[in-house]
Amino acid sequence: MSAPLLSVEHLTMRFGGLTAIDDLSLTADRGKITAIIGPNGAGKTTVFNCLTGFYKPSVGRLALNHEGGEFLLERMDDFRITQQARVARTFQNIRLFPGMTVVENLVVAQHNKLMRASGFTALGLIGWPSHRRAERAAIELAHGWLERIGLVDRANDEAGSLPYGDQRRLEIARAMCTDPVLLCLDEPAAGLNPRESAELNTLLRDMAAREGIGILLIEHDMSVVMGVSDRVIVLDYGRKISDGTPLEVRSDPAVIRAYLGEDYAAGAGA
């Protein structure tokens, strides 16, 4: 093991006078699930937006390493980050393509692969075999993911017509179809019932183990965080206040103070 999959160094993001993230450094590894937690407004989603190129950080270095080389995410366009650095993400408020079918959502995610196979449309127009093969493979991959998230029988329905929990899982599968090495999940368990969030735990563990990807997870649901994370990073007001295994973090006075207030921490300490 040489360099970690993702290493964030001295990330700072300012919006005018507001410092949303203040000198944050963290790493994430392959096959591991790293949770980022913190009270509302702590800057968790902003970290994701910096990682995926939606924001350009004010200061900092975001380096991602995989077989393809080293990528400095802060210098790349958002769509190139997915395409070349292979970082995928989901959104806090689900962003599927509601008017397209479930399987189309998964095939769209394989856009760059299919574009190359279709000779950037030219070969696809004349029905070149490489394109037809690639499209069959893309549908096959989508089918595999639908089986894993249990949505095969809804494959040809409009994505917007799915129930909330299914939409969440479909969004994760769609992000996985871009063939990422790092997956950023923004509150994947929000709005799920206990059974669905237990299923989500299994899926996430399974993905980290089988695909060997690194997962960054923002989550409020502590049963998910404590159940699946290998490591937990706690943010408060844009600063990292704790970093360790779930057990370590749970008993960290700084975390208790941030979540439950100064008095409670003093009481618990005494």
Binding site: D78, L96, V108, F120
Partner: peptide
């Protein structure tokens, strides 16, 4: 073709399409 699906994806949600690596 992939480009046609990308058009529809951009129409449906441009932010999500960019997050999937589609060059807008």
């Amino acid at each position: 073709l992939p480009v046609g699906r990308a058009w529809e994806a951009l129409r449906e949600d441009e932010v999500a399409a960019r997050a999937l690596g589609i060059n807008p």
